[in-house]
Design a protein around this nucleic acid. Structure first.
Lengths: 134, 134
DNA sequence: TGACTAATGTAATAACATCACATATCGAGA
DNA sequence: TCTCGATATGTGATGTTATTACATTAGTCA
């Protein structure tokens, strides 16, 4: 069981900003929201994000160049599967889920092909239930 | 059975560039390779790519902001599953594959959650067999 | 012809990310 | 306590990726 990471000031500011947000935020949006707290340059955000990604507290959504706080307060120990994201293009909401079958299937492909996987991105774009019926 | 798309001059130039390439290329790399053919601005590349993506002749790799010619000369009719990409971070080579189980699993999640999927990205980053043993 | 649509050319700008270098903060030992 | 090393931070400049806005050209078809 991992204990919570000690965050530095900037890391905490960035993480809190993401946690409070409704949906994913771009690095520059985070920067703007933290100008009042003394942030002045993109690198301050990117550096904090880098650590938070390391710690597994934040995810990067590659398909929209944005970041979200991790939805699951899971212990960040080893052995969890790949995470998929469903991103609504109307409202921006992101649902995070993990599927063992998909994880397994990807692992099969990689092992059969001698591919050493380091990171996997699964992002589903579309329209969420709420927006679809609206 | 879809017949080959009639490509415009710019579309053909961009497609040929991607086809000849060993691996994925960024839009700006394509631009540089086409300066001799009269290309002068990024938009010329992006516009051609947009069409080629529509036609299914090219894929975009979201995790590395690059583009590849589609590996399968498959007919681009309906009914094919989601495509996954394994991207080698050493040599840049991309392997493309399609897995029915993964496709099925994603469809199950989306239908259970009322999510209307429009596009799905599956990208595996890592080191390919050739580079791993080298 | 005229009018509509698709494709193109070009410059400017926006959005996203990193490099390079200086400075500060903090803990582990001498 | 002092000093060293590691980590974190501040800041400007730059690099990279993508789009906006507007003008022009080319093809289609009534």
């Amino acid at each position: 069981m991992t204990t919570a990471h000690e965050l530095t000031k900037n890391q905490a500011l960035v993480f809190n900003t993401l946690s409070r947000a409704e949906g994913p935020l771009s690095a520059y949006t985070i920067l703007d929201q933290l100008r009042g707290d003394g942030f002045r340059a993109p690198l301050q955000v990117y550096r904090a994000l880098e650590k938070l990604l390391d710690y597994g507290m934040v995810h990067r959504l590659e398909s929209i160049n944005a970041f979200v706080a991790c939805a699951h307060p899971h212990n960040h120990s080893h052995n969890h599967g790949m995470i998929a994201f469903a991103i609504c293009e109307k409202c921006g909401q992101v649902s995070e889920f993990s599927d063992d079958v998909i994880t397994q299937r990807v692992r099969e492909w990689t092992s059969q092909n001698g591919f050493k996987q380091t990171k996997t991105t699964i992002e589903i774009r579309g329209v969420c239930a709420a927006c679809g019926t609206a």
